[in-house]
Design a protein around this nucleic acid. Sequence first.
DNA 1: CACTATTTGTCCGTATGTATG
DNA 2: TCATACATACGGACAAATAGT
Lengths: 258, 258
Amino acid sequence: MLIDQLNTLKAEWDASQSGVLSRIPLYHQIYTALKDAIVNGTITFGDKMPTEQQLVSVFDVSRITAKRALDELAAENLIVRHRGKGSHVTYRWEPSPVKGPLIGLIKNMSELFQHSSTKAISIEKTTPPAEVRIELGLEGGEKVHKVVRVHCDEDGEPYAYYVSWTVGISRGFTRRNMQEHSRLEIISQNGISLTHVKQTLSAEPATIRVAAALDVVPGAALLSLTRRSFDETGRLVDLLHGLYNPKRFKYLIELSLE
Amino acid sequence: MLIDQLNTLKAEWDASQSGVLSRIPLYHQIYTALKDAIVNGTITFGDKMPTEQQLVSVFDVSRITAKRALDELAAENLIVRHRGKGSHVTYRWEPSPVKGPLIGLIKNMSELFQHSSTKAISIEKTTPPAEVRIELGLEGGEKVHKVVRVHCDEDGEPYAYYVSWTVGISRGFTRRNMQEHSRLEIISQNGISLTHVKQTLSAEPATIRVAAALDVVPGAALLSLTRRSFDETGRLVDLLHGLYNPKRFKYLIELSLE
DNA sequence: CACTATTTGTCCGTATGTATG
DNA sequence: TCATACATACGGACAAATAGT
């Protein structure tokens, strides 16, 4: 490992020495910094790790602390340590190919629908929670269509979890019908034309329920999409909340600049 | 605070009890869970906090640990504590779902730049990790410009963490210059015209370093953006990886349908 | 008014983990 | 390896303020 690479690690380490990080043990912070460099391929197989003395001088810690950081890497078989020779990386980095469906704007939605299978978990007419009720402009006990779905890719692996609330639907929201037609098609069949859409993308941790459906651990980071669809009068008729497994799904935006 | 709200917190806490988080003190983890509930408005002004004994039984910790979590909240003036009465929330939550800036397509970038302050953590020429090296088509030891930045909103709260790798830059990547000009402007000044951009949006958990910079818990779900910028010959010249705190930042897409 | 349960404040001792020199 | 210091976490004990019976 080059000394300036080490200084780079130190610089970023210094910049983040506030808040939560200060509560984490020093040796573990150094261990993490070095581990990141190894698993990212910045230091590759066979490279020499910084010596304990280098870590002592660069990170300004005691030798025991530096030693422990390296020991933990050795315990994970990321490096090997030899007296007189130093520590060397044994982890072989391999590029991870990106797979899974990519989605762009809403036009691609129907295409996406063809290349993936949808499983409706629940279709019901019920009273929405307060947040949703206010957004849809509903009275107290009014019921609307709630649909929970899971999308799977070609291999049958789940990658998306949807919860949607739709007002003004009188027919078509049946399990059989939703296997053949997309939700937007059914809304259109009910005489509602959606003219305006607002989407926000964000991220949120997986709840236990969603984690089980998407085959991830609870608390895992998920890409989240909130789509508000308005009709020609500007009324919100459809509220969609989508959660995506980032391993199997990415949101692609491609643009040319002039 | 209702007991089932507390159990919800505990469930989320359990879910994230793997990996990095376990190195953070118990009292601080509980403190964070409660603080999130307060600043998110789950528990609002005047509400009663869980008692020390409730925390003890729900989180299965000693009273000292539970007490310290509440004491830290009191030290931040988020709650007040009284003998015999319990602890009550003094923080007034205002319902602004998105405090930070909203961003759409790349045209808004310069505008975004004006409404937020940028802090460059490190600017240097170094050898990138293998992943980046392959994408940029570099030989083994070649060095490129690496810039790590943090964006803050009007209140000075950090909401974005950027790491960028740029090839073919000979001048202008200095700390002073980057305070006045955006990175894309400097690239343009170097005679490189970016004609094509590919962006993918995804989600990933915060590393301890990023967590510290963005003032979130390690492992928290972050919105991630990867932007690949190409010049007129189709060569990748800039690789940007952005991480956004979803509490302060959402990616808005607004479209009209025909 | 006393009595009691609740809830926080303060103190003790002990064990373990972290970090230095 | 040793001695030292500090932080974390546990269990327990008692005191003091509050609210209800």
